[in-house]
Structure formats: structure tokens, C-alpha cells
Amino acid sequence: MLKYIIRRVLQTIPVLIGVSILVFSLMHLIPGNPAQIIAGEGASEQTVRQIEERLGLNDPIHIQYFNYMSGVLQGDLGNSVRSGRAVSDEIGARFWVTVELSFYATILAVFIGLMAGIISAVRRYTVADTAIMVIALFGLSMPNFWLGLVLIDWFAVGAGWLPEWAKLRPSGWGDSWRQVILPVITLGTGGAAIIARMTRSSMLEVINQDYIRTARAKGLTDRIVTYRHALKNALIPVVTVVGLEFGGFLGGAVLTETIFAINGMGRLTVQAITQRDFPIVQGAVLVLSVLFVFVNLIVDISYKLLNKRIDLN
């Protein structure tokens, strides 16, 4: 097992190098001179030169990559060409906001998704099952920018609807639940739907297994058969989906943050793109990618741990 973990960790190294190369080449993949683009169309040649100089664009490309990476490894992601502040500071201020938003969305998705999936599987082919699956299909098909706008229209415009019964600001984001709850719903709904469908199909598959028949043949109640014998097995594939969803939420946060004007990584990235602030874009994409790789690593390891007993070898 330890071997597997070490191997799996070592495997992330080439992935991370690949990611860093991709992120680095962002600036060079754009047609035209990046310095010119940053400076804007009317800029003087001298300004462009200065920018080139500052960004080291005149060095050979592998030297540029080496310089960038040695900076990255020391926590230096360069400076914003707009504000002049360190990219790491800009990101650091917003990183936890995004993580927190994704985290709450994951909790919501898992909680709702599991409940709905289990109810659906246990009461399969009933009205409840059909209703849940129809709702899940809606949840899945709704783009979250649209859902976000609808939620704002329904709840925020008719303001005061959501009670202000708690303050929540571990990351300094959101004055109240009111500001937290709508974005979390927006972001988490799609995931909840996926988890519900996944849980249902996984449960149905498990319910037909021989060992479930064995459990029934022992004279156990349906409750114990379902929640002890079936659920524990059914959850194993769901774990992977939960991990992937969390990763997906990091990406989904870009839209959600923009709609709800939350000052997180997503919004930062969007702003940086519109302002052609390449160092910020690079830094944000790099951090999100690393986070995604890391989450996947954890998912893989926990799946292996859970699945160890099923592994017939």
C-alpha cells in the first residue's frame, strides 16, 4: 500500500511538469508579441521594450522557462503587470475564498446527492424515484450561470428572504449566509445531480449482487441489508465522483464568482484575462491545476484504500 502511495505521488511529478510547461507557454501561444498586447495598441515602442525587458521576453525560451520555474518553486509567480503587486499576494488573498466555495458546494452536493440517490434506489420504480431522477436531470442540464441568475432573481431581488442567522467569514468572504448560500447552490446543484444518479445506479448494481442475497438469507432486516451491506459497497465508486466533482467545482467557480461578484480566484482570472494581465492568468491557472492534481491524488489513494478488499488479486 505504501508502495502504491509513493508510486502514485511520484507519478504526479511529470504531470506537474507538463502543467507548468503548458501554463508557461500561454504567453507564447498567443499570436503576436505579448509585450505589445499587454501594452495596448497605442503604446509607444519604448513602453513595449520596457515590458519585454521586465518580463525577460528577450532571453531564449528555455532560459525563460527555467527562470519562471525557479521563481515558482520559491513561491514567486512574478508581478502583475497592472497593479505591480506580486502575483502570489494577489492569489493568496483569494485562494481560500475559492477553496471554501468549492468545499461548501461539495458538501452540499454530497449530502443532497447521496440522500436523493439512496431514496431513489431503495424506492426504485416508484413515484419518488421518478421525481428525484427528473429533478436530477434538470439539475444536470442547467448551466450554472443560468441557475445563478435565476436564483438571484428569485431570492436576492425579493431581498430579505434568507435569514441572516449566522456570520461566516473564515476566508473573509461573504458578510452573511445570504451571500454564501446562493453561490453554493449554484455551484453544487450539478454535482448533486451527478452524485444522485451515480449513487442510484451503484446501489442498484450492488443490490443484485450475490452477497446481498446472502445477507437476506441470513434473516437480516431490509434496513440492515440496505444500509449496512449494500451502501458500504455502493459508496466506493461514488467516492471517485465526489473527488472529481470537487475538482470540477474549482473550474465552475470562475463563472459562479463572476455572477455573484465574489472576489475569488475565478473572478481574478476573468479580470486578468480581460486586462491581459498574463502573469496573473499564468499564476491562477497554475495554482488551480496543482490543486486539481492534488485532489485527484487524494481521491485515487482513498479509492485504493477502500477498494483494497475487493481487489481479487
Binding site: 450475490d210 452477497y211 446472502t214 451491506h229 458500504k232 459497497n233 478488499r309
Partner: peptide, 11 residues
């Protein structure tokens, strides 16, 4: 049952 491989709960 017939299949001892699958008739016990793996977890």
C-alpha cells in the same frame, strides 16, 4: 450458494 467468490460481502 453456488458462487463462494461473490456470495460473501467484500467489505
Amino acid at each position: 450458494f453456488q458462487e463462494p467468490m461473490t456470495s460473501l460481502n467484500p467489505v
